[in-house]
């Protein structure tokens, strides 16, 4: 098992307010990793720091053992759905093709192969009949699946996703989790910012508990404990109770 992501002494600040503080972390490959923590804990920022989208106050990030610039061909990013204006004049297929532009450069016309890859990705997310749909006429779940398809055509080894399950319907949630498992089983690494503590043990292998500082990181069974969650969320016991219950449920299921 080799290390995909390595953070050392990572500190990120917006203006003077620190968002991430002194984070030391490494993530192994072939895992489905959830980044969990309260609002404003720096979860999205951790992804953005990985992608070199925000300046670091100190420390470094290594992606596949090198700087992101050199590894970018192996990384695909799925930003938060709300971060773009969906009234942009574009079709679903158009947006998915954007995932190929990194390899196509400025001019090269998309080949039949690129098109086939885009349609294939749309099929995987259950959107093949929406290829020519204007993106403003998609539901939230369909928007999310379009974004996922755009990442899939990048054919990456590492997928970074910012809240892929936020505000999506049940069908979309099932589709996404099936694809994430498929990616993991093919040896890819997937890192998701995740909000729903209940589903963490069910969906993911690894968890990173974050609240500006790194609280804990590791396999769910070892790290996703009430004590650590308590630490991460302060005193919000109601959530923790239910999350712990679902962990127990999973463990019980694993033993039978």
């Amino acid at each position: 098992m080799s290390t995909v992501l390595e953070y050392h002494d990572l500190t990120v600040a917006y203006h003077t307010r620190p968002v991430l503080w002194d984070v030391d972390l490494s993530l192994p490959d072939g895992k489905l990793v959830a980044i969990v923590g309260p609002n404003g804990a720096g979860k999205s920022t951790l992804l953005k720091a990985t992608l070199d989208l925000v300046p670091l106050s100190s420390g470094y990030v290594r992606v596949f053992g090198t700087h992101y610039d050199k590894a970018r061909g192996r990384v695909a990013y799925v930003p938060q759905r709300e971060s773009v204006d969906w009234d942009f004049p574009s079709t679903v297929l158009d947006v998915v093709m954007m995932g190929r532009y990194g390899k196509l450069g400025w001019f090269r016309r998309p080949s039949a192969e690129d098109r086939a890859a885009a349609l294939d990705a749309l099929k995987k997310v259950g959107m093949n009949s929406y290829a020519d749909r204007q993106i403003s006429r998609l539901s939230g779940g369909q928007q999310q699946r379009t974004f996922l398809a755009r990442a899939l055509v990048q054919d990456a080894d590492l997928y970074l996703m910012d809240e892929p399950f936020a505000g999506v319907d049940a069908v979309t949630e099932r589709t996404i989790i099936a694809i994430l498992h498929e990616l993991r089983d093919a040896g890819r690494t997937v890192v998701c910012v995740h909000h729903d503590l209940q589903t963490v043990p069910e969906y993911f292998d690894w968890v990173v508990l974050l609240n500006m500082r790194l609280i804990a990181a590791g396999p769910i069974e070892e790290v996703f404990t009430t004590e650590h969650l308590n630490h991460t969320y302060g005193g919000r016991l109601a959530i923790l109770e239910s999350a712990a219950t679902s962990l127990l449920r999973r463990n019980r299921g694993a033993r039978t």
Binding site: V75, F88, W106, R150
Partner: peptide, 19 residues
């Protein structure tokens, strides 16, 4: 520069992640 402009306007962060 049609292609980079289009990516920049639609989703600047994704564009940046593509290089």
């Amino acid at each position: 520069f049609y292609r980079p402009f289009k990516l920049l306007v639609f989703d600047a962060e994704h564009a940046a992640s593509l290089g």
